[in-house]
């Protein structure tokens, strides 16, 4: 009978184990089974530091948004409408997400007059609605 465990098979097994370790396979499996996609997206990106994508994912989930609100980002980033499955800004929407509203002197960049603030993260990332 042919031996199943020989040096060649052993080397392949070691390589498979190495790849599993290298890609953090078990950690990934644990994360996928315990955290939903939206939460993993929030963790994959920054919350309200660099691109603000984590905050958008948070708002999308919390307010069960299906369509893209207006996204006003005061930092230079590619369009973020992809989060809602759109490739460009939808035209008619009275809700907006404002990202990085505070400048270096802590002054507000966006005029919030005529807007109701629905969600506020440190006055810097906001979810607002037109009154």
């Amino acid at each position: 009978m042919k031996k199943i465990i020989n040096l060649n098979n052993f080397v392949i097994l070691i390589l498979v184990i190495f790849l599993i370790k290298f890609t953090s396979f078990f950690k990934d499996v644990y994360e996928i089974s315990t955290k939903d996609h939206n939460l993993r997206q929030q963790l994959a990106y920054d919350y309200c530091d660099y691109s603000g994508e984590g905050y958008i994912f948070y708002i999308k989930k919390k307010y069960k948004l299906k369509n893209s609100p207006n996204i006003v980002n005061f930092k230079r980033t590619p369009s973020q409408n992809w989060i809602f499955g759109n490739y460009k800004q939808s035209k008619k929407n009275n809700k907006s997400i404002i990202l990085f509203n505070l400048d270096e002197n802590n002054n507000q960049r966006f005029d919030l007059k005529n807007f109701k603030v629905i969600d506020n993260y440190k006055n810097d990332c906001l979810f607002i609605e037109k009154l």
């Binding site: 890609t23 396979f25 990934d28 994959a44 369009s79 499955g85 490739y87």
Partner: peptide, 29 residues
Amino acid sequence: IIAIDIANNLTLYWDAKKLWLPKTLIFFN
């Protein structure tokens, strides 16, 4: 193994968000 890694890492590169994903969304929609 790679699929699981993609599913947990998720981060898209700047160019992917700027160039390729908008094109993908055109076909997807």
